[in-house]
Simulated scan of single mutants.
Amino acid sequence: MTGIAIRTLDALWVLWTCARMQVKAMKGNELGLVIGVVQPVVLILVTVGAHTDEAPEVLTGWTVGVLLTTLWASTVWIAGGILRGELRSGTLARSVTSLRPGFLVLLGKCLGATARALLVISCSVAVTLLMSRAPVTADRPGWMLLGLLASVCSGAALGMLLACILLLTRYGLQVSAALMYPVFILGGLLVPPDLLPGFLHWLPSLISLRWAREFLTNAAAGTVSWQALIWLVALTTVYFLLAVKAFARVIDHARREGTLELV
């Protein structure tokens, strides 16, 4: 086995182990239950449940929008707060000074948090749709699964980036709230981009989950939007590269200045 293969397997093992640890740590998390259960149920009832006479394609678009809107909220409040949680519990130093790259540990935890959140949200949405008997479509389930996996990766990359940003401020809750609601309105998830003011039409294009919505909605209707998938992957890659760079700068600053109590 070559050195590259060994390093790849080792990286995958780190990601898997950290993801499992994060999933276990989230059990019984009240915030996760509110975001993953209460919020999607309310949004589905307000959108889909109140308009079951609409065309299935329209209801499917709203359902996907609710799913990704709630995933964004989970990314901000849960994945984005992972480093702050480690700082409070005193485990941050071990995470960033281990033999494995610290960003790999963070990525694994963000993947675990995002995947678990999406699973809980999906179950909540599915149960609510069954109870409301809303006619939604799912013509290309394989492509939809691919879109969901890409959404998990995108949410994890965003979570990494937010974790680094929130670690630098004492006002994490306020910053989280300030980041969350503008995306609810301007992110192209629940509010169609063409309903936004003309000078804001470009803004949703910078949000990867907006392209995830387009891809999933089209896949549910029976078509594959390659443009949406390409934009989703490209923006996710950009988020990840920015997150790795931000993580390196945060840790370097912390080690030099001692501002994050790493020693």
Rank of each mutant, 00 (worst) to 15 (best):
A157W: 00
A157Q: 01
A157E: 00
L158S: 09
L158P: 00
G159Q: 09
G159A: 06
M160C: 12
M160F: 03
L161F: 02
L161D: 00
L162Y: 02
L162G: 00
L162E: 04
A163D: 03
A163S: 15
A163C: 08
A163E: 03
A163M: 07
C164K: 04
C164N: 07
I165R: 09
I165F: 06
I165V: 08
L167F: 05
L167Y: 01
L167K: 04
L167V: 06
L168G: 09
L168N: 07
L168Q: 12
T169I: 11
T169P: 01
R170L: 11
Y171I: 10
Y171S: 08
G172P: 11
G172F: 13
G172E: 15
L173P: 07
L173I: 09
L173T: 13
Q174D: 15
Q174I: 15
Q174M: 15
V175Y: 02
V175L: 15
S176N: 07
S176T: 09
S176I: 04
A177E: 15
A177R: 11
A177H: 12
A178F: 13
A178V: 14
L179E: 04
L179W: 08
L179V: 13
M180Y: 08
M180T: 13
Y181R: 14
Y181M: 13
Y181A: 12
Y181P: 05
P182F: 08
V183R: 04
V183Q: 10
V183A: 12
V183M: 14
F184D: 05
F184E: 09
I185S: 10
I185A: 12
L186F: 14
